[in-house]
């Protein structure tokens, strides 16, 4: 969801949003059945390539977006590396016990997290929320009252931030000082969250009454301002994954990086 900085539109932007989402959900579930680290590594490369080349954002920004991925990779891998089951000990220190098996299993988990992150960020960067909800209404038959509620809700985000600023200024001008420590943190949480939540609910209620009066919840005979359909790019998207993942699978069988076929502990 990008409002304020420029990017090029690529073929990924032209995909049918529902189709893109469903494909990615299938890919997500398929990853759960991959236990071969060689295939997993190739799989990760295939998804990250799509993001690196076709996101339409300048390369520098793409690298910046990749930075938190590193944390995700490390944080997903470490628990299993340090505390996983295994027999071939590499390193032992106190509670930490690194074995060959746990190490590769940890890396495998890190790669999984990277794949999910790659797919997710590709979707987020190449999909306009409005098109997504129009597409969900037209192709997935999502009831309009859900879709329009969500779109209206997204529009409230900037107002929420404005309100946050207002509360901050109001407290500043009155010279409110917060205590330090846990109690101060709780106090701060309270003075911000209560007014922000209550105002949001009031506003949402007012908008909803207006929307209902204007028949936004009507299902029958509804017409749509945006007509979302399928195109040749959807086929291309499907083919990209079929061809690339087949190649990834074949290569992992023919030229494995590691002599491991299943990272699970038997």
């Amino acid at each position: 969801m990008q409002f304020d900085f420029k990017y090029k539109e690529t073929w990924l932007h032209k995909l049918n949003p529902s189709f893109k989402l469903m494909t990615m959900v299938v890919l997500f579930l398929s990853v759960l059945f991959i236990h071969n680290i060689n295939f997993m590594l190739n799989y990760t490369i295939v998804t990250l390539l799509l993001f690196l080349i076709f996101s339409g954002h300048p390369f520098k920004r793409v690298l910046l977006i990749l930075l938190p991925f590193l944390f995700i990779f490390i944080s997903s891998a470490t628990s299993m590396i340090f505390f996983g089951k295994g027999d071939t000990t590499w390193f032992k220190w106190g509670l930490i016990h690194i074995t060959e098996e746990s190490f590769f299993r940890g890396i495998h988990l890190g790669l999984r997290a990277l794949t999910f992150a790659g797919l997710g960020i590709t979707f987020a960067l190449t999909t306009r929320p409005v098109y997504l909800f129009y597409s969900l209404m037209q192709q997935m038959k999502l009831p309009p009252r859900y879709a329009y509620s969500f779109m209206a809700g997204l529009r409230l985000i900037p107002i929420m931030f404005e309100e946050f600023q207002t509360i901050r200024y109001a407290m500043k001008v009155r010279g409110v000082q917060h205590k330090r420590g846990v109690k101060g943190f709780y106090e701060k949480l309270r003075v911000y969250s209560i007014p922000m939540l209550s105002q949001s609910i009031r506003r949402a209620h007012r908008i909803a009454v207006a929307m209902e009066a204007k028949r936004f919840s009507q299902v029958k005979n509804r017409t749509f301002y945006y007509k979302i359909s399928f195109s040749k790019f959807d086929l291309l998207f499907l083919l990209y994954f079929i061809v690339m993942l087949s190649a990834a699978y074949f290569l992992s069988k023919q030229f494995p990086y590691f002599p491991i076929t299943d990272v699970r502990y038997e």
Binding site: P68, S149, G153, S200, H205, A208
Partner: peptide, 28 residues
């Protein structure tokens, strides 16, 4: 659920959606 219920639910959810997003750096 009526549109009012759904919209209020979703607005509350979006507030927490932002919290969820900000929670990731805290988490790691």
């Amino acid at each position: 659920l009526k549109l009012t219920d759904i919209l209020v639910t979703i607005v509350i959810a979006i507030v927490f959606g932002i919290v969820y997003k900000l929670w990731t750096p805290v988490y790691y």
